[in-house]
Simulated scan of single mutants.
Amino acid sequence: MPFTLIHPIVVVPLRRLLPPVALAAGAMAPDLPYFVPYGIVDMIPLGPWWPLLDAGYTHSVQASALVADVVLALALAGVITVCAAPARALLPQAVIRRVGRRSRPRAAHWAWWPLAAAVGIATHLVWDRLVDQWLGALGDSIVMEDEGVHLVGSLITLAALGWACWWLWRRPLSEPVPQPGPRVRLGLLAAMGLLAAVLVTMLGAGLVLRSLVTLTIDAVVLVLLAYAAFHRLVPSRTAR
C-alpha cells in the first residue's frame, strides 16, 4: 500500500478547486491510527470514540466510518495549518522557493474544508482498494511472498513520489522567506532526535520497521507543534 505521506499526491490536480490543506489531510486521515503507538491506545479512555484509533474501521466504507475520517481529517488540517509556516521556514531556501508561500485563507475558505476532506478521504480509500485488488490479482498468478507484495507497493509509491518531485521542480520560484538562525535549527533537530529516541525506546520494542518510522514522524510533528506555538507567542526569538 502507498505510505501515508504519499497519498496527497492524488489530490494535487484538485488544489485549485478545493482547499489544499483539507484535501491533503483527508487523503491521509484513514491512516492516522497507524501513528498511534499500540501501548498508548489502551491508556486513552476514548469510550465510544475508540474506533477513531482502529485502522480497519477508518478504512471501511460505511457512513459512521466516513464521518470519523472527516473528523480526523479536520483535526489534521488544523495541525497542518498551525505547523505549516514554521516548518516551511526550516527547509532549505531552494526548497522553500519551490513550495511557495501560502496565502492567508478567507473566511469562506473554511466552509469548504469538510467537502475537501471527504474528497481526499475518497481518493485514499479508492487508491488503497485498487492497489489491493491489483496486487491480489498479481499474487494469484505469480507466487509472491508478503515482502514481495509490499515491495511492489513501495515501487508504485516511489513512482508517485518521483512524479511529485518533478511537478515541484517545474513550479516557478517564489520570493525568499525569512528563516530562523542555525541555533534554532540545530536545537529543533536535536529535540526531534531525542524525542524519537525516547519514543522508540519506550514503545518500539519488537515493532516492525513501519512502526519505528511512524514513531519518528510522531516525534517530528510534536516538536513542530511546540515550536509553532512558541513561534506564534514569541516570534522574535525564533529568528535568532
Score class of each variant (00 low, 15 high):
residue 114 P to I: 03
residue 114 P to A: 07
residue 115 L to A: 15
residue 116 A to H: 08
residue 116 A to F: 08
residue 117 A to H: 09
residue 119 V to R: 04
residue 121 I to M: 09
residue 123 T to I: 00
residue 124 H to K: 09
residue 124 H to E: 15
residue 124 H to F: 09
residue 131 V to P: 02
residue 132 D to L: 10
residue 133 Q to L: 10
residue 135 L to V: 06
residue 136 G to C: 08
residue 137 A to I: 01
residue 138 L to Q: 04
residue 140 D to T: 05
residue 141 S to H: 03
residue 141 S to W: 08
residue 142 I to R: 04
residue 142 I to H: 11
residue 144 M to G: 11
residue 144 M to T: 11
residue 145 E to Q: 07
residue 146 D to V: 11
residue 147 E to A: 13
residue 147 E to N: 12
residue 147 E to T: 10
residue 147 E to P: 02
residue 148 G to S: 05
residue 150 H to V: 13
residue 152 V to E: 05
residue 158 L to F: 15
residue 158 L to I: 14
residue 158 L to G: 04
residue 159 A to S: 11
residue 160 A to R: 00
residue 161 L to S: 04
residue 165 C to R: 02
residue 165 C to Q: 00
residue 166 W to N: 02
residue 167 W to E: 15
residue 168 L to G: 07
residue 168 L to T: 13
residue 174 S to A: 11
residue 174 S to G: 12
residue 176 P to H: 09
residue 179 Q to C: 01
residue 179 Q to W: 02
residue 181 G to R: 09
residue 182 P to W: 13
residue 183 R to L: 15
residue 183 R to M: 15
residue 184 V to A: 15
residue 185 R to V: 07
residue 188 L to S: 08
residue 189 L to T: 11
residue 189 L to H: 05
residue 191 A to G: 05
residue 192 M to D: 08
residue 192 M to S: 05
residue 193 G to P: 06
residue 196 A to I: 00
residue 197 A to R: 08
residue 198 V to H: 11
residue 200 V to G: 10
residue 201 T to Q: 12
residue 201 T to I: 02
residue 202 M to I: 13
residue 205 A to T: 00
residue 205 A to M: 07
residue 206 G to F: 13
residue 206 G to D: 15
residue 207 L to Y: 05
residue 209 L to R: 06
residue 212 L to I: 01
residue 214 T to L: 01
residue 214 T to H: 08
residue 215 L to H: 06
residue 217 I to P: 03
residue 217 I to T: 03
residue 217 I to W: 09
residue 221 V to M: 10
residue 222 L to I: 10
residue 224 L to K: 00
residue 224 L to A: 05
residue 226 A to G: 11
residue 227 Y to N: 05
residue 228 A to Y: 02
residue 228 A to Q: 09
